[in-house]
Design a binder for these strands. Structure first.
Lengths: 250, 250
DNA sequence: CGCCTGAATTCACACAGGTGAAATTCGCCC
DNA sequence: GGGCGAATTTCACCTGTGTGAATTCAGGCG
């Protein structure tokens, strides 16, 4: 089931078959299905377990008293929602679905066992946690410094590369099941301006976006326009793979 | 030495004297001094140790190719810069000082020993890590949704409450050793607009700011204006202290 | 196959906040 | 106590993005 998670963690370091089985076990105990636009956890709830997205898109978001809403991050298949969240008393934000979602609830004891018995998983989860933090920092830069065009471009680059990391791209394209309003909630722009920006990106042939399918004919060009530097995703094995492939069986 | 860190961690859960001694030991092995506006670590460096701010202010920041600069977070006395960075190959951002800074470099082995031998410290460091992540998320909301006035107001509330948590406030005031340009780099506003906003906050008597000293005569009023909800700082003991104080010796 | 509803698009106009530069004040060192 | 560089403040003007509302489009369902 958790192929996407396993595939993602492999970007950092190879896992053994044993590790894989342990993850599969942990992710199959309690699987839940949500419809689109439902809350998985609400602000104020006490976190009871870790959610692993198996299928579909979700997001963290926070709503101000007066209704303004900020999407704080996107969860894609293979993403874990806060491996250590139960240290805190209650959630300071909500997690909601964007599309219908299938997810696995992993109980805290289960998480503990997983990391106690599998040092490589522990290490890989650390990597995943730190990359998540790096993404959050990059969003800070995005919202603070980039123009509308750059923000949307940057977000699209990030999503595409993250999806590629879990095997959910086909060539230069992927599914993008978010509305323009949601893109606006994530980038701090109004829906009207998101639309303007998308038109501009289209007319410059940096993206092709029809329905829910996004193609990026020239990723490097889009990266250049959006001032996107991939280093914050810490895809370390890109370099390692060649050096070490002869050392690691399988 | 690390009174501020200890005091901060105590907000979450009480530490034993033994725990305190271990932290003191770890924080006294290698102390370094930096002048104002110096880099402590640069983007691309391989992290070798954890930095603990003993005195002074620092920040994380990221610079775009064209010079735009975003301050991603502030480090105050008692703050640890990424307890687990060394999982990653290299830094994706820089850490620089704002004022002169005295900090302790804690080697990774030292960190490991600390957490291996002191479960309460481990737990408290987890809390600190998760609060740091929550702060980063709140900055995302700040930059994405709040107006200039609200952004600055929110930042001032946060800094004041964090400083209070480490004993660096006096009544309703504290030191604020940052320039208006730096406030702008943190909030995504131009220095001119930061100035306008500060005037406005002053004229509404929400703040008193002279030189490097900030006073907030009515914190609740400022919080209201800035849509500041303190829950993301997870100051859990505020509530616990009363309920549990009779249960926990010392 | 047509309808219904949410999503995307377009329009006209308003304003928060940016820009560049000049003027003033402050903090600090000799 | 005077002078110098940095920080703050002010000014005039400009632009990216927001607002509110109307219009068109698209996809799922009876």
């Amino acid at each position: 089931m958790p192929q996407h998670l396993i595939r993602k963690l492999q970007q950092f370091a190879p896992l053994s078959e044993e590790d894989g089985r342990a993850l599969e076990d942990a992710a199959s105990r309690k699987v839940r299905i949500f419809g689109a636009h439902q809350d998985v956890i609400r602000e104020g709830d006490a976190p009871e377990h870790v959610n692993l997205i198996l299928e579909g898109w979700a997001c963290r978001y926070k709503q101000l008293e007066d209704g303004r809403r900020q999407i704080i991050s996107f969860f894609l298949p293979g993403d874990l929602c806060d491996p250590h969240v139960f240290v805190l008393r209650e959630m300071d934000h909500a997690i909601g679905t964007i599309t219908p979602v299938r997810l696995a609830e992993i109980h805290r004891d289960q998480m503990l066992r997983l990391t106690d018995e599998h040092p490589r998983i522990t290490q890989a989860l650390w990597w995943e946690t730190l990359v998540t933090a790096a993404i959050q920092r990059e969003w800070t830069v995005n919202l603070g410094q980039r123009t509308g065009l750059e923000r949307i471009g940057h977000l699209l680059c990030e999503l595409f590369i993250r999806l590629r990391g879990v095997g959910l791209t086909e060539g230069d394209s992927c599914l993008l099941p978010v509305t323009q309003v949601e893109l606006g909630d994530a980038t701090g722009l109004s829906n009207v301006h998101v639309n303007r920006v998308l038109q501009e990106l289209r007319s410059r042939e940096l993206i092709v976006l029809r329905g829910k399918r996004l193609s990026i004919p020239d990723l490097e060009a889009l990266q250049r326009v959006a001032l996107f530097n991939v280093n914050y995703l810490h895809l370390e094995r890109e370099g390692r793979r060649l050096e070490e492939s002869h050392l690691i069986p399988g």
